[in-house]
Amino acid sequence: MLNIKIINHSTHLLPAYETEHAAGMDLRAFLNEAITIKPLQRILIPTGLHIELPVGYEAQIRPRSGLAFKHGIGIVNSPGTIDADYRGEIKVLLVNLSDTDFVVNDGERIAQMVVAKHETVNWQPATELGDTQRGAGGYGHTGK
């Protein structure tokens, strides 16, 4: 279990796993009043949360599948990344990909957050790379 410092300026409970084996914790909107997202509109939704991630970790902000399926609501920069050195409020950049208005209410679950370990890369300049069966084959190269 990883301990992470969190400041909660919202009136909502801390993010939590909804099921025993869930990877993501739901984030809730922290709003003074409901916000309407028009079709194809993008809006930055505050959560009231600030976190202090350990070095070597990131928090990924991902869409909620139910909002995407039922209402066409997604996240523009999905997954969004919160770096270990960021201390500002977590905000979620929602987009309405449907043809109808969508109303976001205070306390509504708007995204999920996954905390993950990552590596720091040290590039090693080279003149050739090891060979593989795939090689340089790119998008759709297998014909499947």
Rank of each mutant, 00 (worst) to 15 (best):
L67K: 08
I35S: 03
I90K: 06
N32F: 06
N32V: 03
G130Q: 02
R28K: 15
A126T: 15
F102C: 03
R134W: 01
M1F: 00
T47H: 09
M1E: 05
H12A: 06
H21E: 15
G48F: 08
H71M: 06
H12L: 11
V115E: 07
Y57Q: 08
I73N: 07
F30Q: 08
H12T: 10
T36C: 09
A136E: 14
H9W: 07
G138M: 11
N105R: 12
D106T: 00
W123D: 08
N77W: 03
E20N: 13
G74A: 12
R87W: 00
F69C: 07
P15S: 14
V114L: 13
S10A: 09
G72F: 11
I7E: 11
N122R: 08
A16N: 15
Q41K: 08
A136K: 10
G56V: 10
P125F: 05
P15E: 14
L129M: 13
A111G: 11
L40V: 00
G137A: 14
A16V: 15
Q124M: 08
S10C: 02
T132M: 01
I4Y: 10
I51H: 07
V104T: 01
T11E: 10
S98Q: 06
S78H: 02
Q112W: 04
I73W: 01
K5E: 15
R28Q: 13
D83W: 12
P46V: 00
N3P: 02
K144F: 05
T100M: 05
K70C: 10
G140N: 12
V115S: 02
N96A: 05
A126E: 12
A59E: 08
G56T: 15
E128T: 13
E58N: 10
A29V: 11
E33S: 15
H71A: 13
D99L: 12
I90T: 03
I73R: 07
L44N: 02
T142G: 01
G88E: 11
V104A: 02
E33L: 02
P54V: 07
H71G: 02
G74T: 15
L97C: 10
L94I: 01
P54A: 11
A16I: 11
G80Y: 09
V114S: 01
V55R: 15
L94F: 04
G88Q: 03
V92M: 04
A116Q: 14
K144G: 00
T127H: 11
G66I: 08
G107C: 12
D131E: 15
E89C: 06
H50G: 00
T120D: 06
G48S: 13
G66V: 06
T132R: 04
I45R: 01
R28T: 12
G24I: 13
L94Q: 02
T127N: 12
K144H: 12
R42K: 15
